[in-house]
Design a protein around this nucleic acid. Structure first.
Lengths: 126, 126, 126, 126
DNA sequence: GTGGTCTAGACCACT
DNA sequence: GTGGTCTAGACCACC
């Protein structure tokens, strides 16, 4: 896992976000075991306590569950992937459109700008 | 000016963002006078020091300039509106498309989702 | 035996509590044989070491005794049922009344609340 | 605030419980400021990080809200007291009656035991 | 081995 | 002053 240590977004929050996206992408499936806190801490070069805070909050969000002494697992909810993906996508869309509208851009401007960028961006990365 | 006190985004940064958007929208034009620090602090119910920091950073960004004894004014740059608007819009688009691509969504999915939301959202607000 | 794997109460402690309650209820009588550690581990889907710890502590509490090669048995104490029942009941009552009193509820409130719930709860389950 | 360092219940959880009860009792009212993390840490002789964890979870529970740089406050919900009191009382009653019923006690036994203890306990403490 | 709690202490951002 | 994040390292309970 790659973290941005220069970002203002807290590391534990980046970790949560990375796992959320991995589940939304389908890379992590319900029931999958995720790395132990110590493993991830070592691999990502952060303190185990930072990883633990992320894992604790993921459990409170019901994204994961922990089995005593066995590790941490993605919650066994068959619909988790779609729920997460649409939730995260909706958040992103709403924030984006709010921002664009507060810049005084009209629907047709937004559509144009998105389409211009879609060709280069998404097909490039995905 | 409305601020979100429960957001993790600092108040001073929200103030800067609000002024930037107002200029990008054309509501504030180059040369316009903005409220005094005391006025804004009172109206928005924030600490005067917080307003001071926002104004200081806006001046460093060259978004505003201060005339001694007369107040603070939007910088007299005829192209400021377009520069700001495209800068803020580009930031928003890049962040949005990065997020969508990291959710595993393809260009056509993104285009569809944006268009679905554009009809209801932007035309509604703008 | 049903255990709550998401509880913060340790599994071994839940096992002990389940046997204690069964004896207090009279379902297990002094001299009764309880399942072997292997059997219980398999049935309840827990680690054999966990069952072992529960059985070890039950023996220290003198709730059970082990006869070599024959298995584990509830201690042959004719008064065990009443001792256990009143001990567990007293613990429960004290914890409950402490909590109610720390919520600022008066004796009459507590009596009323208990009576309200007694009609639906206990007669329903017992 | 008095904490039981020998209890198996984590300190941060005891802190949360203490504040919850104080609100349910009406000792802390919505809008009241609670001690700063450092203050409480010093007074209760625990590490500031332990207090912070309790405060963070209370905020997630919406029991409190924090105002940047100003401190932590009980949530301004006029009905908070009654909601909390009935929620905590219901939890306690249910746990208690479940336990009593699993000991094989009937409604009349429970009523008798509670009434016996009510005279000495609650009137004594409250 | 696993996760959970706690301490100590540093550093930062905000008001 | 306030709360928020992070590190380092200890200790514990559980499996």
């Amino acid at each position: 896992m790659e973290l941005d240590f220069s970002s203002s977004r807290p590391i534990y929050s980046q970790i949560i976000h990375e796992f959320s996206k991995a589940v939304a992408r389908g890379e992590l499936a319900p029931g999958d075991r995720i790395p132990s806190q110590r493993e991830l801490a070592e691999q990502a070069k952060v303190n185990p306590n930072t990883v633990q805070r992320a894992y604790r909050e993921m459990e409170q969000m019901q994204l994961t569950e922990t089995l005593r002494g066995q590790g941490t697992f993605i919650t066994k909810d068959p619909d988790l992937l779609h729920k997460l993906r649409s939730e995260l996508a909706n958040q992103a869309v709403r924030a984006f459109l709010d921002e664009m509208s507060s810049l005084g851009l009209k629907a047709e401007d937004v559509a144009r700008i998105v389409n211009e960028n879609l060709t280069s961006e998404v097909t490039h990365n995905g």
